[in-house]
Nucleic acid binder design. Structure first.
Lengths: 361, 361
DNA sequence: GTTAGCACTCTCTGTGTGTGAGTGCTAACA
DNA sequence: TGTTAGCACTCACACACAGAGAGTGCTAAC
């Protein structure tokens, strides 16, 4: 694979990313001045096709990059990025200042509310890229999740809110409806008791003595204790499933590869399915290059996504122990360079923001 | 408007709802046996067109109901429903047992978690109807929202979670990051102090003495008090904005009226815009018939939705004081009868479920 | 008042043709 | 030996056109 072929392949891919139209030899001869005639490029393209990097949709169309072509291109891109990250060569143009500021705002305006931060991050990424963004909550992957702390708070005369935090730092609210809800003072007293008896323990291992203490404490609120136990069981059973936030699904409608409404609908449904998404993110963990993972086209398992690529990175919270994913899903014909830039930008911002707060507060 | 014209109009609308194709006189003569020939029906249709209830897309197509036609049809439907709700005439067929069971499950499985309940409700409705479902959180509409209660709970060494409940029963979680977070006991103690000083009061009206007490209580956790105050200001400023849950937006893609991807995208964006949706729901409050409101086609203000109708009902919580909306958004050519049935079914279920719990616990 | 018959209109579908973009091959050139 | 010009060939796509089908409105008869 000589350097000229690489240049031509890059030209084809870049042009195809921009236009979504099969690109012909004449186009390349004109657009990327390599000092070669279309005939020469034609010969090279014939070779590239033989090597499997490009394919012709039909005899008299131009060529379109294959998954293998994108893979070659992306591997080169990521390699360059590691090797020459200091010298800013034009193959990896930095993010525009506006884009940076935009991302920064999305992160910093929501620094205290992780759920909003993740949702806004997804929105910002999809806005900048016009692709689909997926952000997963950072959780510490552990088995045998337990209740770490829990608290009751009154909402109205008939409702108390139970907030639970698990050992994997999953936070959940549960509205419980009662004939007469305890007031704030009572809630806080009950919270203290509950933390003593439940926190850090296996639910099945509650001693009879502890049970008695709980029943006594909850004497004034029949049924409430049972409701709480039911909720806690549910929380523990569900385990450390991170929430997943998506943004820009509507962008599917702007992509010519999903002109077919059936295909668009299939992708839609796949992306709405949280479990599928989770698998996708995990799949992308083969991690050849630290920091960024790219899954191209049919490399992923979902048929609905066989025309899509996933570019993924990881962010860290809680001193690096909890990790979450940030991913961009676009057509295989996506702007990988931009996607990588944006992901690294946003991951840096999130990592720094959370770290800075740790340091300065 | 004699009874025969009404019958014919109903036939046209029902057929058009089912097929999305302009319906001609011969179709009607065959499908709804009125004992009339196509020629007679043709004459009647000519009259109906003159009256504005149907329109011909072009000279040799069939007729399509106009907004006015749907309006006439819907008003009649709702009227019948009130008048003869006991006798089950076939113009308002009841929900199928399976559908009822499905809705029931969606409600009862999530009775203790309002946010899940609303989300699942939206999902269930969109699943049953293949339209878009919108469900808004029930809030008590009041001005000058205040903090009703609030509580701190530790998440990890660097994070505490602040849960706030406002006078309008808005519940929010806020993760706060610190150099060293207080433990459960300290959190509960701080919670007690905060509730004494903040609950029910205007933030601006905190006395110097109260401020001093707070500062003393928070002495061990620099910055935390300031962070909490900032969060509380935000919560109060945001006011009683209900959250809105949507389901089935993807169903747009199955509707022939949105074959044009531009239109689909526009609708998509309109529905994603929470404020638009809120306005839509409020707009639908003209309330001719108690319980159900229907906004048809261009009756609503959004151009993106001029081919859509909105069928809405209201549910109640907290002894009837807080109200939320449940709405179905579909094409003007939607199955109004089904929509009304489902909305009444689900609203009843939610109302009853919440009331029952009040009674029995 | 209802219906049968008929001429007319308009969309939609299928067919055929021409055009343009692109390729591969060959031969000439540096 | 690599590069280029030229040319014949292929194939999708756009366009025009004819025919079919569905539906209407009108008229005249029942």
């Amino acid at each position: 694979m000589d350097v000229r072929k690489v240049r031509i392949l890059e030209c084809i891919i870049n042009d195809y990313i921009a236009t979504a139209e099969p690109v012909g030899s004449r186009t390349i001869a004109k657009k990327c001045d390599l000092g070669l005639s279309s005939a020469t490029i034609r010969n090279e393209m014939s070779d590239l096709e033989e090597m499997g990097y490009i394919v012709a949709p039909h005899a008299s169309a131009g060529r379109v990059p294959s998954d293998a072509g994108y893979r070659f291109f992306v591997d080169r891109l990521l390699h360059q990025r590691i090797g020459g990250s200091t010298k800013s060569d034009k193959s990896a143009p930095a993010l525009s200042p506006e884009a940076l500021a935009f991302l920064e705002a999305a992160v910093f305006n929501n620094i205290n509310q992780i759920d909003y931060l993740l949702k806004e991050t997804a929105k910002a990424i999809s806005f900048l890229t016009n692709y689909i963004a997926v952000v997963s909550e950072a959780v510490t992957p552990i088995k045998g999740e337990r209740i770490k702390s829990l608290v009751l708070i009154p909402v109205d005369e008939n409702t108390v809110l139970l907030t639970t935090v698990t050992s994997a730092k999953n936070i959940k609210n549960h509205s419980l409806r009662l004939a007469a809800a305890p007031d704030v003072d009572a809630c806080l007293t009950l919270s203290r008791v509950m933390n003593i008896e439940f926190a850090g323990k296996e639910l099945g291992a509650i001693t009879p003595a502890a049970k008695k203490r709980l029943i006594t404490a909850f004497a004034a609120y029949p049924h409430l204790l049972q409701m709480i136990v039911t909720v806690l069981e549910g929380v523990v059973a569900e385990g450390g499933k991170p929430r997943i936030y998506t943004g820009g699904i509507k962008n599917i409608l702007t992509l010519p590869e999903f002109d077919d409404k059936g295909k668009a609908l299939a992708l839609f449904e796949a992306i709405e399915e949280q479990d599928y998404l989770m698998d996708l993110l995990n799949e992308a963990d083969s991690g050849k290059v630290p920091g960024i993972n790219v899954v191209i086209g049919a490399e992923n398992q979902l048929v609905e996504l066989k025309n899509c690529s996933i570019v993924k990175t990881t962010y860290h919270t809680g001193g690096g122990r909890a990790t979450g994913d940030i991913a961009i899903i676009g057509p295989t014909r996506m702007d990988y360079s931009q996607a990588v830039n944006i992901l690294q930008g946003i991951a840096d911002k999130i990592n720094n923001a959370l770290k800075n707060i740790n340091d300065s507060t």
